[in-house]
Design a protein around this nucleic acid. Structure first.
Ligand SMILES: [Mn+2]
Ligand SMILES: [Mn+2]
Ligand SMILES: [Zn+2]
Ligand SMILES: [Zn+2]
Lengths: 127, 127
DNA sequence: GTGCGAACGATAACCATTATCGCTATCAAT
DNA sequence: ATTGATAGCGATAATGGTTATCGTTCGCAC
Protein backbone atom coordinates (compact mmCIF):
# COMPACT_ATOMS: atom_id res chain seq x y z
CA UNK A 1 0.00 0.00 0.00
CA UNK A 2 1.80 3.11 -1.20
CA UNK A 3 1.45 6.34 0.67
CA UNK A 4 -1.68 8.33 0.02
CA UNK A 5 -0.10 11.75 -0.20
CA UNK A 6 -1.95 15.02 -0.57
CA UNK A 7 -1.28 14.96 -4.29
CA UNK A 8 -2.60 11.44 -4.70
CA UNK A 9 -5.68 12.24 -2.62
CA UNK A 10 -6.35 15.20 -4.85
CA UNK A 11 -6.10 13.08 -7.97
CA UNK A 12 -8.29 10.40 -6.43
CA UNK A 13 -10.92 12.90 -5.32
CA UNK A 14 -11.15 14.38 -8.79
CA UNK A 15 -11.55 10.99 -10.40
CA UNK A 16 -14.05 9.78 -7.84
CA UNK A 17 -16.15 12.93 -8.08
CA UNK A 18 -16.55 12.47 -11.83
CA UNK A 19 -17.70 9.85 -14.24
CA UNK A 20 -15.12 10.48 -16.92
CA UNK A 21 -12.21 8.55 -18.30
CA UNK A 22 -9.30 10.90 -17.69
CA UNK A 23 -5.84 10.93 -19.16
CA UNK A 24 -2.86 12.16 -17.16
CA UNK A 25 -2.68 15.49 -18.90
CA UNK A 26 -6.36 16.27 -18.44
CA UNK A 27 -6.07 15.52 -14.75
CA UNK A 28 -2.98 17.70 -14.35
CA UNK A 29 -4.59 20.62 -16.17
CA UNK A 30 -7.83 20.37 -14.22
CA UNK A 31 -5.97 20.22 -10.91
CA UNK A 32 -3.91 23.28 -11.82
CA UNK A 33 -7.09 25.13 -12.75
CA UNK A 34 -8.54 24.27 -9.36
CA UNK A 35 -5.48 25.76 -7.70
CA UNK A 36 -3.63 22.58 -6.85
CA UNK A 37 0.01 22.91 -7.75
CA UNK A 38 1.09 19.50 -9.07
CA UNK A 39 3.72 18.30 -11.51
CA UNK A 40 2.85 16.09 -14.45
CA UNK A 41 5.32 13.43 -13.33
CA UNK A 42 3.59 13.31 -9.99
CA UNK A 43 0.29 12.70 -11.73
CA UNK A 44 1.75 9.78 -13.67
CA UNK A 45 3.37 8.31 -10.57
CA UNK A 46 0.25 8.91 -8.52
CA UNK A 47 -2.01 7.24 -11.04
CA UNK A 48 0.27 4.22 -11.21
CA UNK A 49 0.32 3.96 -7.42
CA UNK A 50 -3.44 4.40 -7.13
CA UNK A 51 -4.01 1.72 -9.73
CA UNK A 52 -1.65 -0.70 -8.04
CA UNK A 53 -3.66 -0.30 -4.87
CA UNK A 54 -6.91 -0.76 -6.73
CA UNK A 55 -8.15 2.75 -6.01
CA UNK A 56 -8.58 3.61 -9.67
CA UNK A 57 -8.98 1.61 -12.87
CA UNK A 58 -7.54 2.23 -16.28
CA UNK A 59 -8.35 1.63 -19.91
CA UNK A 60 -5.46 1.34 -22.31
CA UNK A 61 -6.49 2.98 -25.55
CA UNK A 62 -4.34 2.97 -28.68
CA UNK A 63 -2.59 6.22 -27.95
CA UNK A 64 -2.95 6.77 -24.24
CA UNK A 65 -4.11 5.35 -20.95
CA UNK A 66 -7.26 6.67 -19.34
CA UNK A 67 -8.28 6.39 -15.71
CA UNK A 68 -11.66 6.09 -14.03
CA UNK A 69 -13.23 5.37 -10.68
CA UNK A 70 -12.65 1.94 -9.24
CA UNK A 71 -15.94 1.96 -7.38
CA UNK A 72 -17.94 0.94 -10.42
CA UNK A 73 -18.37 -2.75 -11.13
CA UNK A 74 -16.41 -4.28 -13.96
CA UNK A 75 -17.32 -3.23 -17.46
CA UNK A 76 -15.82 -2.87 -20.90
CA UNK A 77 -15.87 0.05 -23.32
CA UNK A 78 -17.24 1.23 -26.63
CA UNK A 79 -15.23 4.04 -28.18
CA UNK A 80 -16.76 6.31 -30.81
CA UNK A 81 -14.25 6.74 -33.61
CA UNK A 82 -15.86 10.03 -34.60
CA UNK A 83 -16.25 12.01 -31.39
CA UNK A 84 -14.05 9.96 -29.08
CA UNK A 85 -16.80 9.48 -26.51
CA UNK A 86 -16.64 6.37 -24.36
CA UNK A 87 -19.62 4.28 -23.35
CA UNK A 88 -19.61 1.39 -20.96
CA UNK A 89 -21.21 -1.99 -21.08
CA UNK A 90 -21.11 -5.29 -19.26
CA UNK A 91 -22.02 -8.73 -20.44
CA UNK A 92 -21.67 -11.66 -18.11
CA UNK A 93 -21.76 -14.26 -20.86
CA UNK A 94 -18.82 -12.67 -22.64
CA UNK A 95 -16.92 -12.52 -19.38
CA UNK A 96 -17.61 -16.18 -18.68
CA UNK A 97 -16.69 -17.29 -22.18
CA UNK A 98 -13.35 -15.54 -21.94
CA UNK A 99 -12.49 -17.67 -18.96
CA UNK A 100 -13.61 -20.80 -20.76
CA UNK A 101 -11.50 -19.99 -23.80
CA UNK A 102 -8.45 -19.20 -21.69
CA UNK A 103 -8.81 -22.40 -19.73
CA UNK A 104 -9.08 -24.44 -22.91
CA UNK A 105 -5.67 -23.16 -23.98
CA UNK A 106 -4.05 -23.71 -20.61
CA UNK A 107 -3.85 -19.97 -20.24
CA UNK A 108 -4.02 -18.50 -16.74
CA UNK A 109 -5.97 -15.33 -17.41
CA UNK A 110 -5.25 -12.40 -15.14
CA UNK A 111 -7.13 -9.75 -17.06
CA UNK A 112 -8.62 -8.76 -20.35
CA UNK A 113 -9.48 -5.80 -22.46
CA UNK A 114 -12.45 -5.58 -24.75
CA UNK A 115 -13.07 -2.44 -26.76
CA UNK A 116 -15.74 -2.00 -29.39
CA UNK A 117 -15.04 0.64 -32.01
CA UNK A 118 -17.65 2.41 -34.07
CA UNK A 119 -20.12 5.24 -34.23
CA UNK A 120 -22.04 6.22 -31.14
CA UNK A 121 -25.77 6.87 -31.31
CA UNK A 122 -25.27 10.65 -31.41
CA UNK A 123 -22.73 10.57 -34.22
CA UNK A 124 -24.47 7.81 -36.15
CA UNK A 125 -27.64 9.81 -36.82
CA UNK A 126 -26.00 12.81 -38.44
CA UNK A 127 -23.48 10.96 -40.62
CA UNK B 1 -5.87 0.51 -53.83
CA UNK B 2 -2.44 1.89 -53.15
CA UNK B 3 0.48 0.89 -55.29
CA UNK B 4 2.06 -2.44 -54.45
CA UNK B 5 5.69 -1.42 -54.76
CA UNK B 6 8.67 -3.70 -54.48
CA UNK B 7 9.15 -2.64 -50.87
CA UNK B 8 5.53 -3.36 -49.98
CA UNK B 9 5.62 -6.71 -51.74
CA UNK B 10 8.70 -7.59 -49.75
CA UNK B 11 6.99 -6.69 -46.49
CA UNK B 12 3.88 -8.59 -47.49
CA UNK B 13 5.84 -11.68 -48.52
CA UNK B 14 7.66 -11.78 -45.22
CA UNK B 15 4.44 -11.49 -43.26
CA UNK B 16 2.60 -14.02 -45.38
CA UNK B 17 5.43 -16.53 -45.19
CA UNK B 18 5.33 -16.46 -41.41
CA UNK B 19 2.87 -16.95 -38.63
CA UNK B 20 4.17 -14.24 -36.36
CA UNK B 21 2.83 -10.93 -35.15
CA UNK B 22 5.47 -8.50 -36.32
CA UNK B 23 6.16 -4.94 -35.27
CA UNK B 24 7.56 -2.41 -37.72
CA UNK B 25 11.06 -2.57 -36.32
CA UNK B 26 11.27 -6.36 -36.42
CA UNK B 27 10.16 -6.34 -40.03
CA UNK B 28 12.70 -3.69 -40.99
CA UNK B 29 15.53 -5.52 -39.28
CA UNK B 30 14.62 -8.87 -40.80
CA UNK B 31 14.37 -7.34 -44.27
CA UNK B 32 17.75 -5.69 -43.91
CA UNK B 33 19.25 -9.01 -42.80
CA UNK B 34 17.82 -10.64 -45.90
CA UNK B 35 19.53 -8.03 -48.03
CA UNK B 36 16.58 -5.81 -48.80
CA UNK B 37 17.52 -2.19 -48.35
CA UNK B 38 14.46 -0.47 -46.88
CA UNK B 39 13.91 2.56 -44.66
CA UNK B 40 11.96 2.33 -41.44
CA UNK B 41 9.55 5.04 -42.61
CA UNK B 42 8.82 2.99 -45.68
CA UNK B 43 7.96 0.04 -43.49
CA UNK B 44 5.50 2.10 -41.48
CA UNK B 45 3.94 3.60 -44.60
CA UNK B 46 3.85 0.24 -46.31
CA UNK B 47 2.17 -1.47 -43.38
CA UNK B 48 -0.47 1.25 -43.20
CA UNK B 49 -1.13 0.96 -46.92
CA UNK B 50 -1.27 -2.83 -46.82
CA UNK B 51 -3.69 -2.72 -43.92
CA UNK B 52 -5.93 -0.19 -45.64
CA UNK B 53 -6.16 -2.55 -48.58
CA UNK B 54 -6.89 -5.49 -46.32
CA UNK B 55 -3.68 -7.31 -47.20
CA UNK B 56 -2.49 -7.49 -43.61
CA UNK B 57 -4.16 -7.26 -40.22
CA UNK B 58 -2.95 -5.59 -37.08
CA UNK B 59 -3.25 -5.92 -33.34
CA UNK B 60 -2.85 -2.78 -31.28
CA UNK B 61 -1.03 -3.70 -28.10
CA UNK B 62 -0.38 -1.27 -25.28
CA UNK B 63 2.96 -0.10 -26.53
CA UNK B 64 3.05 -0.94 -30.20
CA UNK B 65 1.12 -2.21 -33.18
CA UNK B 66 1.80 -5.68 -34.52
CA UNK B 67 0.97 -6.99 -37.96
CA UNK B 68 0.03 -10.44 -39.20
CA UNK B 69 -1.29 -12.22 -42.27
CA UNK B 70 -4.76 -11.27 -43.41
CA UNK B 71 -5.38 -14.69 -44.88
CA UNK B 72 -6.34 -16.20 -41.56
CA UNK B 73 -9.93 -15.98 -40.44
CA UNK B 74 -10.84 -13.54 -37.72
CA UNK B 75 -9.55 -14.25 -34.25
CA UNK B 76 -8.58 -12.46 -31.07
CA UNK B 77 -5.47 -12.73 -28.96
CA UNK B 78 -4.11 -13.92 -25.66
CA UNK B 79 -0.89 -12.23 -24.62
CA UNK B 80 1.42 -13.80 -22.08
CA UNK B 81 2.53 -11.13 -19.64
CA UNK B 82 5.65 -13.14 -18.81
CA UNK B 83 7.17 -14.14 -22.12
CA UNK B 84 5.21 -11.90 -24.46
CA UNK B 85 4.04 -14.77 -26.62
CA UNK B 86 0.77 -14.35 -28.46
CA UNK B 87 -1.83 -17.07 -28.92
CA UNK B 88 -4.93 -16.85 -31.00
CA UNK B 89 -8.48 -17.89 -30.37
CA UNK B 90 -11.91 -17.45 -31.86
CA UNK B 91 -15.29 -17.70 -30.25
CA UNK B 92 -18.38 -17.13 -32.31
CA UNK B 93 -20.64 -16.57 -29.32
CA UNK B 94 -18.45 -13.75 -28.05
CA UNK B 95 -18.40 -12.22 -31.50
CA UNK B 96 -22.18 -12.40 -31.76
CA UNK B 97 -22.73 -10.98 -28.29
CA UNK B 98 -20.57 -7.99 -29.08
CA UNK B 99 -22.87 -7.11 -31.92
CA UNK B 100 -25.91 -7.55 -29.70
CA UNK B 101 -24.46 -5.29 -27.03
CA UNK B 102 -23.49 -2.63 -29.53
CA UNK B 103 -26.92 -2.70 -31.12
CA UNK B 104 -28.60 -2.31 -27.74
CA UNK B 105 -26.73 0.94 -27.20
CA UNK B 106 -27.44 2.29 -30.67
CA UNK B 107 -23.78 1.87 -31.42
CA UNK B 108 -22.76 1.15 -35.01
CA UNK B 109 -19.83 -1.20 -34.43
CA UNK B 110 -17.10 -1.15 -37.05
CA UNK B 111 -14.56 -3.23 -35.20
CA UNK B 112 -13.42 -4.54 -31.88
CA UNK B 113 -10.41 -5.64 -29.99
CA UNK B 114 -10.34 -8.37 -27.40
CA UNK B 115 -7.11 -9.25 -25.65
CA UNK B 116 -6.74 -11.68 -22.78
CA UNK B 117 -3.74 -11.14 -20.53
CA UNK B 118 -2.16 -13.76 -18.38
CA UNK B 119 0.30 -16.62 -18.21
CA UNK B 120 0.63 -18.98 -21.13
CA UNK B 121 0.78 -22.74 -20.59
CA UNK B 122 4.56 -22.81 -20.92
CA UNK B 123 5.16 -20.02 -18.44
CA UNK B 124 2.40 -21.10 -16.06
CA UNK B 125 3.95 -24.45 -15.21
CA UNK B 126 7.31 -23.17 -14.05
CA UNK B 127 6.10 -20.20 -12.01
C1' DG C 1 12.90 12.66 -73.56
C1' DT C 2 9.83 15.44 -70.49
C1' DG C 3 6.61 15.97 -66.86
C1' DC C 4 3.91 14.50 -63.13
C1' DG C 5 2.54 12.12 -59.06
C1' DA C 6 3.42 8.60 -55.84
C1' DA C 7 6.66 6.48 -53.06
C1' DC C 8 11.32 6.26 -51.06
C1' DG C 9 15.02 7.14 -47.43
C1' DA C 10 17.07 9.92 -44.06
C1' DT C 11 16.05 12.43 -40.44
C1' DA C 12 13.53 15.70 -37.58
C1' DA C 13 9.47 16.24 -35.00
C1' DC C 14 5.79 14.56 -32.10
C1' DC C 15 3.80 12.94 -27.96
C1' DA C 16 2.78 9.91 -24.13
C1' DT C 17 5.35 8.02 -20.76
C1' DT C 18 9.43 7.09 -17.86
C1' DA C 19 13.95 8.13 -15.81
C1' DT C 20 16.97 11.28 -13.49
C1' DC C 21 18.20 14.23 -9.89
C1' DG C 22 18.26 17.60 -6.42
C1' DC C 23 15.13 18.89 -2.94
C1' DT C 24 11.52 18.32 0.60
C1' DA C 25 8.12 16.09 3.59
C1' DT C 26 7.41 12.27 6.80
C1' DC C 27 8.45 9.71 10.59
C1' DA C 28 10.93 6.70 13.68
C1' DA C 29 14.91 6.57 16.70
C1' DT C 30 17.93 8.99 19.51
C1' DA D 1 14.37 19.01 19.09
C1' DT D 2 17.92 16.72 16.05
C1' DT D 3 19.24 13.25 13.23
C1' DG D 4 18.88 10.01 9.50
C1' DA D 5 16.51 7.03 6.37
C1' DT D 6 13.06 6.75 3.00
C1' DA D 7 9.49 8.00 -0.10
C1' DG D 8 7.59 11.33 -2.85
C1' DC D 9 7.77 15.80 -5.32
C1' DG D 10 8.71 18.90 -9.36
C1' DA D 11 11.36 20.23 -13.25
C1' DT D 12 13.22 18.49 -16.98
C1' DA D 13 15.78 15.25 -19.92
C1' DA D 14 15.41 10.97 -22.11
C1' DT D 15 12.95 7.19 -24.35
C1' DG D 16 10.52 4.87 -27.91
C1' DG D 17 7.00 4.17 -31.23
C1' DT D 18 5.07 6.66 -34.76
C1' DT D 19 4.36 10.46 -38.06
C1' DA D 20 5.80 14.63 -40.77
C1' DT D 21 9.09 16.84 -43.70
C1' DC D 22 11.78 17.24 -47.70
C1' DG D 23 14.76 16.45 -51.35
C1' DT D 24 15.38 12.57 -54.47
C1' DT D 25 13.97 8.71 -57.31
C1' DC D 26 10.89 5.64 -59.72
C1' DG D 27 7.08 4.39 -62.96
C1' DC D 28 4.44 5.74 -66.45
C1' DA D 29 1.65 8.67 -69.72
C1' DC D 30 2.32 11.81 -73.36
MN1 LIG E 1 -15.23 2.83 -17.81
MN1 LIG F 1 -3.28 -13.07 -34.75
ZN1 LIG G 1 -19.63 9.80 -31.25
ZN1 LIG H 1 4.49 -17.13 -21.66
Amino acid sequence: MAKLTIQRQTILNLINASNQHWDADELARELIIRGHKIGIATVYRGLAALETDGLVNSVQLADKKRYERAVKKHHDHMVCTKCGSIEEFANDTIEALQKVVAHEKGFQMSGHQLILFGCCARCGQQS
